[in-house]
Design a protein around this nucleic acid. Structure first.
Lengths: 392, 392
DNA sequence: ACGCATAATGTGTGCGCCCACAAAGGTACG
DNA sequence: CGTACCTTTGTGGGCGCACACATTATGCGT
C-alpha cells in the first residue's frame, strides 16, 4: 500500500519532467494512468516513460555505449524517480553466463572446523545453483608456505570469477592477491583477515575480542584460582610456529587477565602438533605433577577435545576446560563435563557468506559490507543441543 | 567434474532402459552422446530421453491428467535416473503467480522483540521479491483474546496463500487454524508453539530448556547465594495472567534449581503490566527493604531492562540480573553492568525463516522441517557487540 | 468400416531480461 | 545531391518453464 502511494506521488513529478513529450504523444497520458502502473517496474515500463525503446534502456542500465546524451538523460531521470529493481532471475536466465569460483583452504581431516566452512561454501553454491555457479577447491599445508604458492599459481591460471581463501603467511598471501587484483578477480577472506590486502570482504571472528571473552567466561568458573593454564599447539619445524588466529586470541585473553585478575598466574604448555597421542599424554602427566593445583585450562584452537579426553582418561573431574569450535570430539567432552565452555564462530555461516558475498557483488551488483564479524557464541552442556546440526 | 561422471555412469543405464525406443529412433543415440549432456538438466532433455514432448513431461512433473501410462512410465524412469531440479526462477517467471501472505502478531511498540520478528518477515519478503510476494500485517492485543478473533476473521476473509502467527489462547488459536486447514491455507507458528494444531512449521526457542539454561548461567554468578528473585510481569485483569512462553521458562529454571541448588530460596515478585513506573519503583523499594540480602534476579521476558534501570537509579552495583532479548534498553543495561546476562532467541531469524518456510513449501515444493528451535544465545557485555545490527 | 467423442500429445506464446543484429538517422565529402 | 560511414535506435530471438490451444491417436458404437 505504502509503496503504491509512493509511486503515485512521484508520478506527478515525472509528468512535469516530460511534459514536452506528453504533449506530442498524448497516449502516454492514458497509458501512464497511475492505476495501470505495475507493482513491479520492468524495463518496458521505463522505456515507455522515457519515450525510448527497451534496447536503449538496457544500454543505459548496463552503461554500454551508443546512447545519445538526450536519451541517456531521459532514462536516467525516470530511473531516479521510480526505484527500478531488475528481476535478477530473469536477468540470469537471459545472460546464461557461467560463474566459476575457487577456494583455497588448509588441508584438513573429516570433522574439522574447515569442513564446516566447506559445507557452508557448498550450500551457498547449491543455493545459487540456478545462476550457473560452480566451484573449484584447492588445499594447502598450513605449515608449508610453498604449498600455498602452488595453489596460488593454479588458481591464477584457472582465472575464476571470484576466490575465497583463508590467508597463509602475509608475503605469500600478498603475492596472490596482487595477482588477483591485476586480473580484476575479487577475493574474500574467511576465518582470519588481512585488511591491508583489501579483500572484497572478510567473514570471521574478531580474534582478540574473542580471547577477551574467553577470559571473562573462564574466570567466571575459576574466580579466586591462583593459576590457570594455556595449552598451545605449535609446529616446531616451522618458523611461525603459532597461527595468527590463536596468537590474537591469546592477546585478548591476557589483556582481560591483566585487567581483572592480575594476580592469577598464567601457565603455558606448548605441544608440538607432530607428537604422538602417547607423547602428549606423557607431557601432560609431567605437567600435572609439576602443577598439581591448577584446575582450569584453555586452548585458543579447536583441539581442546584432546585435553578433555586426557582429563576423562585420568578421571580428573575437578579439571575444567574452555576451547573453541564445535568438533564432534569437543561437543562430546562438553557433554561429558570435561570441557565446560566452547566458543563457536559459525564456520558454516562464514563459508556460506563468502560465496553469498561474491554472488551479491558479481551477479546482483550490490554493495556488500567489507568487515563481517561472526558472533562470539558461548556453548555449554545446556544449550549445545540447539547449535549442532543447524547446517543442511 | 564429479557430477558429470555421475551423469555419465547413469547414462548407460538409461540407454538400456529404453533400448526399444533407441532402436526405433536412432538419432537419439547421436543426440544423447554423453559429451552433449548439459550440466543442468532441462525439461527439454528429459523429453528427448523419454521420447515424448516437453508438454508431456510438464504434465507428469505437475501431476496433471492426460498422460498415457506408457508415457508416464517413460518419463518417470528418466526422472529417477537423472535427478532433475527445475530452474525455479524460470518457473516463477513463467507462472507469474502472485503469493499473498498474512501475519498475526501482538501489538507492540517500537524497539520491542516483535519488531525484530517483523524485520525478519519483511527481509524475507524482500529476498523473495522476484517471486511476486506480498504480505499483509494483522495485530492483536495479547491481553484481549477477542482482538485475536477479529484478526482471525479478517485473515480468513482475505484468504492468503500462507499465514505466520504467534499463537494466542489455545481455543482462539485452534478455531483459526481449523478454518485455515479447511481452506487449505498453510500456517506457521513463531515464538511459541502449539504442536497439536499441526502447523506447517514452528520457529522459536525451546522455552523450558531455555529457562534451565538461564538457571545454570545465573548460578554461575550466584553460586552459594541463599536466595534469588524472579520478577514476573502479570496482567491482573486477564484470567491467564502469565504468557505461555514465560511460564515454560520458569518451569525449566525451577527444574534446574531443584536439581542443583535445592537449598537456594526462590523469591517471586509479581508486577502488573498496568502499573506506572513510579508504582513499580515503590513496589521494588518495598521488596528490597523486606529482602535486603538478595543479590541476583531474573525475568523470563524481555522486560529485564526495567529492573536494570531501577538498580542503576538506586546505585546498587551489587545486584545482578539475567533476562531475555536484545532490546535497546536491555543492551544498555548489559553494557552498564546492571544486567549481567541476556539470553537471545534470534527473533529476526524466526521471522525470516517463517516466510522462507512458506516459500520453500509453496513455491519450491520442498519438504521443510516442522520443529525449528533457535539457538539459546548467551550475551554478556563482552560479546554483545557482535550480535546487534546483524539484521539488515 | 466409418464417424464421433475423448484421451493423448505436440506446439506456440509469453514471463523479464540480454544481446546480436537490423534499421534509421545524421554527417561529411566528393 | 548522392554515397559512404558512423552514430543512434529499434527489433527479434532465446534463456527454462507453464499453460492454453491445436493436433493427432485411440476407442467405441453403429
Amino acid at each position: 500500500m505504502a509503496v503504491k502511494k509512493h509511486l503515485v506521488s512521484r508520478w506527478g513529478f515525472i509528468i512535469s519532467l516530460f511534459d514536452v513529450q506528453v504533449c506530442f504523444i498524448p497516449y502516454y497520458i492514458i497509458e501512464c494512468d497511475m492505476e495501470k502502473l505495475p507493482e513491479r517496474i520492468r524495463i518496458k515500463d521505463i522505456a515507455r516513460l522515457a519515450g525510448v525503446s527497451v534496447g536503449t534502456v538496457d544500454r543505459v542500465l548496463h552503461g554500454r555505449a551508443g546512447v545519445s546524451p538526450k536519451s541517456r538523460e531521459s532514462v536516467e531521470a525516470v530511473l531516479q524517480q521510480l526505484d527500478y529493481q531488475p528481476n535478477m532471475y530473469a536477468s540470469a536466465l537471459a545472460t546464461n553466463k557461467k560463474y566459476l569460483f575457487a577456494y583455497i583452504l588448509p588441508k584438513h581431516d573429516e570433522g574439522s572446523y574447515w569442513c564446516d566452512i566447506e559445507k557452508g561454501l557448498d550450500y551457498a553454491v547449491r543455493t545459487y545453483n540456478d545462476f550457473h555457479i560452480s566451484i573449484a577447491p584447492f588445499y594447502y599445508d598450513p605449515y608449508i608456505p610453498e604449498t600455498f604458492e602452488e595453489c596460488s599459481k593454479e588458481v591464477v591460471d584457472l582465472s575464476p570469477d571470484g576466490v575465497v581463501l583463508s590467508p597463509s603467511t602475509p608475503e605469500k598471501t600478498f603475492s596472490l592477491t596482487k595477482e588477483l587484483k591485476r586480473k580484476g578477480i575479487p577475493f574474500v577472506f574467511v576465518d582470519s583477515n588481512m585488511p591491508d590486502l583489501e579483500p572484497l570482504a572478510f567473514y570471521g571472528q574478531r580474534s582478540v575480542q574473542s580471547g577477551y571473552f574467553a577470559g571473562s567466561m573462564l574466570m567466571l568458573l575459576a574466580r579466586d584460582e591462583q593459576e590457570v593454564v594455556i595449552f598451545r599447539h605449535i609446529h616446531a619445524k616451522n618458523e611461525a610456529k603459532i597461527m595468527n588466529q590463536q596468537r590474537s586470541r591469546e592477546v585478548g585473553f591476557k589483556t582481560y587477565m591483566t585487567k581483572y585478575f592480575p594476580n592469577c598466574k598464567i601457565l603455558e604448555l606448548d605441544i608440538d602438533v607432530e607428537l604422538s597421542p602417547n607423547q602428549v599424554d606423557n607431557l601432560l602427566d609431567k605437567f600435572f605433577i609439576q602443577h598439581p593445583n591448577v584446575k582450569y585450562g584453555l586452548t585458543f584452537n579447536s583441539k581442546v577435545g584432546i585435553f578433555g579426553e586426557y582429563v576423562e582418561r585420568r578421571k580428573r573431574t575437578d579439571f575444567h576446560l574452555l576451547g573453541y569450535d564445535l568438533l564432534d570430539k569437543n561437543v562430546q567432552c562438553l557433554k561429558n563435563g570435561s570441557v565446560h565452555f566452547l566458543i563457536a564462530q559459525q564456520p558454516f555461516t562464514q563459508g556460506f557468506c563468502s560465496i553469498d558475498g561474491l554472488c551479491k557483488h558479481l551477479i546482483f551488483r550490490k554493495e556488500i559490507k567489507q568487515l563481517n564479524y561472526m558472533p562470539i557464541e558461548l556453548l555449554t552442556a545446556d544449550n549445545i543441543d540447539y547449535y549442532v546440526d543447524k547446517q543442511e
